[in-house]
Design a protein around this nucleic acid. Structure first.
Lengths: 257, 257
DNA sequence: GAGTGGTCTAGACCACTCC
DNA sequence: GAGTGGTCTAGACCACTCA
């Protein structure tokens, strides 16, 4: 890793107006992000202290602080006073439901001990729709996973998951079955792929006979269709997910601000 | 407005460990929020400069900066380099679709020139469900608005809106009809109520015959039910909204991070 | 007690907007 | 050119964690 920010002048030296001006802290952000992406610091690990990073990058601690602040706000890092700054991970309890926004209707925010039932894991070719979402060519190879999420033995979510990237060739039904913990934690630990953010599109649809059977509802029953594209570092689209939620006793929770 | 932060010691003076410790910038945030809430600075207006606020509150500019930064991140203020800091408003183009997350299916982010059709505006008594959402007593008086949103002449959204607070007694169908611009902008300008954040619960439901008629779809058609509670300053619940979205050619867009 | 992040200050200079 | 927010620095002290 470089020991100097990407700039021609020392920080204090007066510089001519720069048309492609990029603040120092932004460059530090990029350097840290590169370290995360390259695996220098792995999810769950402690990164160097602010003063250490300031020394390493040749900037003041305040500048490192601003960079780390923003990365923490974006969810890539996690600051803990007195302990240090950690790389975010899907293994933490705190963030397990950051991506699954479905919660039981009762007011009590009961954490949901969801059971999982994997139906299938195979290699498929990308359809036009999935290819567009993932930014690959139609016909390219993808890994597909189909599964159910159940609450108290009753199916609540049916999902089809499409994964891009050669790494996921190695994913097997056996590995999915045996793994305890969130899917994204598995991807992180064994496929070096951390999901950083996602975009979702929601629709209400009437259950087809097939879908009705999977979710044990009547055909025509209204279901919440959730299409998600998940991105890893550097906005690389990695996963496309098509989920059908039975919202008779659950709802999708969202906050606007 | 106070000219000193709420603290017994001068900022530099060493203080005994404080069990109910609150950082200075947090106190400044509260003071600014109180100014917004009390109408000292109205939506769209310019607030004093950082150095002016620092002088007024007797703290350093850096402390004011941190307070304003957070208020801007929360959407209450809007910073514009070279011009100053403004109170956020629903009148701005930029934030018009911050609360309505429904967008047309086409990739092109075509701004939607939605027509509105007000069906009714009357005083009603709060049902248990609405009372709980708004934190009022069942049976309390509320103002109810029912309306349709249309795109190219076709209804896409049916909404029932419940407004708490004596101010909204004065709301009339005529005023709604004649007002150009978002509903929240009207509330801001004429009812001194700025919506700051909202919580939504989404479900898929089958259209009742009545609902099907409003939205010109077949009975049983899957619709997206969006229940929203909107909050003004100090987390005061002001509005409950029950919306039915036809998602055949639109979808609800959400970002996770 | 040592080390970490969190707060606060003071001062400098830069980029942007408007007169 | 004056005024605003934006960046950057240097140094001090505080709150928290852990050994």
């Amino acid at each position: 890793m470089a020991t100097r920010p990407v700039t021609d002048t020392t920080p204090q030296a007066p510089a001519a107006p720069n048309p492609s001006f990029s603040p120092l802290y932004q460059q530090i952000k990029d350097l840290i992000t590169r370290g995360l992406q390259g695996g220098e610091w792995k999810p769950g690990e402690l990164i160097p202290s602010e003063s250490e990073l300031a020394r390493r990058f040749g900037v003041s601690q305040g500048t490192v602080r601003k960079a780390v602040d923003e990365l923490a706000a974006e969810g890539l890092l996690l600051r803990r006073q007195g302990r240090g700054t950690f790389v975010s991970t899907h293994h933490e309890e705190r963030v397990k439901f950051r991506f699954l926004r479905l919660v039981p209707d009762g007011e009590g925010m009961a954490p949901q001990p969801m059971e999982r039932q994997f139906l299938e894991c195979k290699r498929v070719r990308a359809t036009h729709e999935v290819a567009r979402a993932l930014g690959v060519k139609p016909g390219d190879g993808l890994t597909q996973v189909r599964r159910l999420l159940l609450l108290q033995g009753r199916p609540v979510v049916y999902e089809e998951i499409y994964l891009a990237g050669a790494a996921f060739r190695a994913l097997t039904a056996e590995r999915l079955e045996s793994y305890r913990g969130p899917l994204y934690a598995l991807f992180e630990s064994e496929f070096s792929t951390r999901m950083v953010r996602a975009e979702e599109r929601l629709r209400a649809v009437n259950a087809t006979p097939q879908e009705a059977q999977w979710l044990q509802v009547d055909p025509g029953q209204a279901l919440l269709l959730v299409e998600r594209v998940s991105f890893s570092y550097s906005d690389r689209a990695v996963e496309f997910r098509r989920g059908l939620y039975n919202t008779q006793h659950h709802h999708y929770r969202n906050e606007l601000s």
